[in-house]
């Protein structure tokens, strides 16, 4: 997410590989497809500029810095994780991650129920299909420990049926 302005700067402003409108389309597509936005953007732009080889190179370019830096951090972690300080830091970070996941999940739920507009008590603005799918899915997950894949497919199917029929 934070990478988007940077990507826009490179792709639209500096290198003129795409117009702003095309870039906005890209963001929409990237939100609709699986995978992190940065990779989706890289693949898409790379493909536009230089076909499949371009897509490959751009994708590699987008993950290489991560690979290098994370490898270094991983080495530090695996070598020094027994140290009290490291354990302390991580003990502070674990609950943080739980909170961040909650925040991300809640944001997605809000998007599903209220769309771009955000929270509102106005019933007309509430997407009840989303509410029902969410409640049903959560119930099924808690009660029968169904695999997430089935929930995704099922909710997609229900969404397809309901939104297209109504």
């Amino acid at each position: 997410m934070a990478a988007l302005p940077l990507i826009q700067n490179q792709v639209v402003n500096l290198n003129h590989w795409m117009t702003l409108i095309e870039f906005t389309d890209l963001i929409t597509i990237a939100e609709m497809t699986p995978g992190p936005i940065a990779i989706n953007a890289a693949t898409f732009v790379g493909n536009r500029i230089a076909g499949i080889p371009g897509a490959i190179i751009a994708t590699i370019g987008s993950i290489l810095p991560s690979c290098i830096i994370v490898s270094i951090l991983a080495w530090i972690y695996f070598k020094y994780r027994e140290l009290a300080v490291i354990q302390g830091v991580l003990s502070g970070l674990r609950p943080t991650i739980v909170a961040l996941i909650a925040s991300a999940g809640l944001s997605i739920l809000m998007l599903a129920v209220w769309g771009e507009g955000g929270f509102s008590l106005n019933p007309a603005l509430i997407n009840f299909t989303s509410v029902i799918i969410f409640a049903a899915a959560l119930f099924i997950l808690r009660k029968w420990k169904v695999k997430p894949i089935y929930i995704m497919l099922g909710s997609g199917l229900i969404g397809g049926v309901i939104y297209l029929i109504i």
Binding site: G105, I108, L111, T129, A137, M152, S155, L157
Partner: peptide, 8 residues
């Protein structure tokens, strides 16, 4: 749109 609620 349906999957969005499911993912949540």
């Amino acid at each position: 749109k349906g999957m969005q609620a499911g993912i949540a």
